[in-house]
Amino acid sequence: MTKVLLASSLILSSFSGLGADLTVEEQRIEKATQAMPQVMAAFKGDIKAFEKKWKKANSYQQAKDLVLDYSSQLWRDAKKRITTANNFDDRELYWARLLSSKVMRSSTPKFAISDTERSALLALLENGSRGRTDLEYTQGTTKKILLTGFDPFLLDKNINQSNPSGVAALLLDGQVISYEGIDAEINTVMIPVRYEDFDKGMIEELLAPYYALNNVDMVVTVSMGRTDFDLERFPGKRRSVTAPDNANIVYGGTQTAPKISSLNGRPLPGNEFVEFSLPVAYMQKAQGPYKINDNHEVTTLEQTFSPGSLSALKSAIAVNGGGGGYLSNEISYRSIRLRNELNSSIPTGHIHTPRIAQFEPETEEKIVKQIKAMLEQSLPAL
């Protein structure tokens, strides 16, 4: 343990005295290193090697090539590590990404890098290490599934928090599943828990090509939720929680005054509620320790209830959708709204997983196995 803590401290020491403005997420690194040194040291060799190459980069193109290669490798290595170590731990990738972005923000390559160039390179790091540049279906399967998971969140409450949806994204990416003679390849992306990314259209940018071309067979967004699995039938349009995102931004919506989010500087368009199109009856056949609920419950300004159909919500103002009033609900709303706008036929919807306390690898293993079973059971309906 002492050796691991020392190794993590050495990573931190290389940033001391540089005085650069760090993000809120990067500022948590020191606390995280004290709380879970083994997690923070998981990619220490890769990060140190990247730092050396970053500082030696002689041009923007050289730095770009470096970040493209490194970020993609970070994603691949994180998937390999979680599989071979069998540790069901998504936190290593999350913190390795932040340690890497801290290198880029706190140190300077040999060429005169501009703020615009640095921001562009940081975006490349984000995309590559989240699986955005690895979205290729190469297995020739009958069906294709796109699945998203989330980073750990509420880290000021529990710095060592894990997220089962992130574990699922790492473990299921590139897998081929089969059921009743039908096979499907799964591709996954890791989504940040940041309001700004959503407001800038990250979800729409990610999903629009698939909906426009109808070239996958199911889009499933996943996040950590309640006691059992909830398939969220009626996502709502508005934000209504006082919980901060990972950048410590509180959007300002409340249960009595929910707020509409943005899309590229304008209010997010669309109806107050939308309805998912997942094959519920098939997915509920998946065996596992948790119930799989077809959750209809929503909250409007008038009441909390479980409508039988979308038409029952026609004149309502959304407070909580099926997925609540936070980004779990919003990724579902945005994906379904976009699907409908682009007249896509791709089944789309959200899975809320059982909640864990900080890090529970045995529980997360059960959760991921049951998600995989849900996807398998859905194949005949696609």
Rank of each mutant, 00 (worst) to 15 (best):
N86C: 06
Q175D: 13
T133D: 15
D89W: 02
S119E: 12
T108H: 02
G131N: 12
Y137K: 07
E180T: 08
L155H: 11
S165G: 02
G131Y: 07
A112F: 08
R97I: 14
I113Y: 00
N87R: 01
L147R: 13
I159G: 10
A120S: 13
G174K: 02
F153W: 09
A112I: 10
I177Y: 05
I159W: 01
T116P: 08
S106Q: 05
S178A: 10
E136G: 09
L121V: 06
G140V: 01
L121A: 05
R130W: 09
D90N: 07
D134R: 13
D115L: 04
V167S: 05
L125K: 11
A184G: 09
E136I: 13
D134S: 15
M104T: 06
I159Y: 13
S119A: 15
A112V: 09
S165C: 04
Y137I: 01
L154I: 10
S100R: 03
D151S: 01
K102A: 14
T84F: 15
L146N: 15
E180A: 06
G174H: 05
A112M: 03
L171D: 06
T148W: 11
L98N: 10
I113V: 07
N127K: 14
R132T: 11
R97Y: 12
R97H: 14
Q161V: 03
Y179Q: 14
T142L: 12
L99E: 12
R97S: 06
D115Y: 08
N160Y: 09
F150I: 06
S119H: 13
L93C: 10
N86L: 10
S106P: 01
L155S: 09
